[in-house]
Design a protein around this nucleic acid. Structure first.
Lengths: 139, 139
DNA sequence: GTGTCTGCAAATTATTTGCACGTTG
DNA sequence: CAACGTGCAAATAATTTGCAGACAC
């Protein structure tokens, strides 16, 4: 299905496909959203000598070349995700899970820019509440 | 116009109306959005002995009692704002200005939760692009 | 082989905390 | 005057940087 060839992508950006870098991308791809601490923990299993400096450096580089982005949500550590089609984040404040949902935002942007004359290029939308699973547990 | 009585508000929350605390609130109120560094700089003029610890502590307390909130936007330091009617943030990536715009988000939330069965409680929306002033300068 | 990347340690920056003293109500 | 809040310094946490050796191509 979701066979992204990160080696190829890195090559086109003139970055070497090191094990660490690929592992970062693959972990992010499979998890969807990760924060630095958790990413580090996970990768330590596979690369016991992995340095946090490597993670910080790589995340910055990957952001700079537009392969990943920061996901900033109030009261949560910054998360990171692989760039894909623009989408909205559904955030559960009970279990802290983040899900993606593709939504048409044209309507919203039109209304927001009406009389404001901004030229909007990207949008960053998080909807925060309770996910179905946690709703069930509550009742 | 916008005569918010922070002393009153603090009293109802059992917080003392110290000069520092009031100055933080008033500065935030007049600027709309500030980050910690800038807030500290500004207040130093008026309170040369002001400690950053005081700012950190106060921002946390004011968040806890729901008077202010964090505004997190990718590639920007965390900003803080006085809580008001829910709104969208229009962000200029050239001059870094943040403006508020009140927009009806019902449509968006309905579409986003369709088949997702989340119960959304708050939303956090930033629309990022170029403001009218910077658009003018570019052309 | 050569330029890029990594790990490590040290440096810097950001945030939190303890405590003695000052201020608010 | 009794909390509570502040400033300062020290502690902790987060992020960045310099450098020598390792790895990708």
């Amino acid at each position: 299905m979701d066979m992204v060839d990160f080696k190829e992508i890195l090559k086109t950006k003139n970055l070497k496909a090191t094990h660490q870098r690929l592992a970062i991308l693959e972990t992010m791809d499979s998890l969807g959203h990760v924060d630095i601490e958790y990413l580090y923990e996970l990768l330590l299993d596979k690369y016991p000598t992995l340095s946090k400096a490597t993670i910080y450096r790589n995340l910055k580089e990957l952001i700079a070349i537009d392969i990943i982005s920061e996901v900033k949500i109030p009261d949560m550590p910054t998360n990171y995700e692989i760039n894909k089609i623009p989408h909205v984040h559904l955030v559960c404040k009970i279990c802290n899970k983040i899900e993606d949902k593709i939504v048409n935002t044209k309507h919203l942007i039109d209304e927001a820019t009406k009389e404001m004359h901004y030229k909007i290029e990207t949008s960053n939308i998080s909807l925060i509440g309770v996910c179905p699973k946690c709703l069930d547990k509550q009742s």
